[in-house]
């Protein structure tokens, strides 16, 4: 089962290494990890998607809380979160294919950000399910490269993690 964990940490040198080190030391698998400053420059938010059963998730939360630089840990329930990942996708595209790819992008809410005689580079930000569908649609043209940010997530509604 996938768990999306939101962690607020002190924005200091070495904190990311402590967090990621904890995952490997305790034998937890990370699917993705994204980190960035919050509205308070002294605090960073790390969003981790990890795989494991409920016991694993509970242990993870407790072990993360034990790190001295950790301010807050929240495992976000799937129905309470809005999760997004940004991807940059470079595909093969000859001039005759461009218009149909453009249609796909319009429908899927993606943007073409670069173009050469034989390639197109697409930017898309969405949920995992939607991104998977986009991949399926583009696969036929030949995907040359994908760059992804990893999932970031926020709670629905007015509640915040602080």
């Amino acid at each position: 089962m996938k768990h999306t964990i939101s962690i607020l940490v002190e924005n200091r040198a070495g904190v990311l290494s402590r967090v990621s080190g904890l995952f490997s030391r305790r034998g937890f698998n990370i699917d993705s990890l994204a980190v960035g400053e919050t509205e308070d420059p002294e605090i960073s938010r790390i969003t981790i998607v990890a795989d494991g059963d409920d016991h694993t998730a509970q242990q993870l939360e407790k072990q993360l809380n034990k790190l001295v630089d950790t301010l807050k840990v929240r495992t976000l329930a799937p129905d309470e979160l809005l999760a997004r990942e940004l991807q940059l996708i470079k595909i093969n595209a000859n001039p005759s294919q461009r218009s149909e790819i453009l249609t796909i992008c319009e429908i899927m809410g993606a943007k073409i950000i670069d173009m050469t005689a034989g390639t197109l580079t697409i930017e898309i930000s969405d949920s995992q399910v939607h991104l998977k569908r986009m991949h399926d649609l583009l696969e036929g043209y030949g995907i040359k490269e994908i760059v992804r940010t990893g999932v970031i997530a926020i709670q629905k509604g007015s509640v915040t993690i602080k």
Partner: peptide, 8 residues
Amino acid sequence: IDPAEIGK
């Protein structure tokens, strides 16, 4: 004293 030990 360590919550992580409980249930580990």
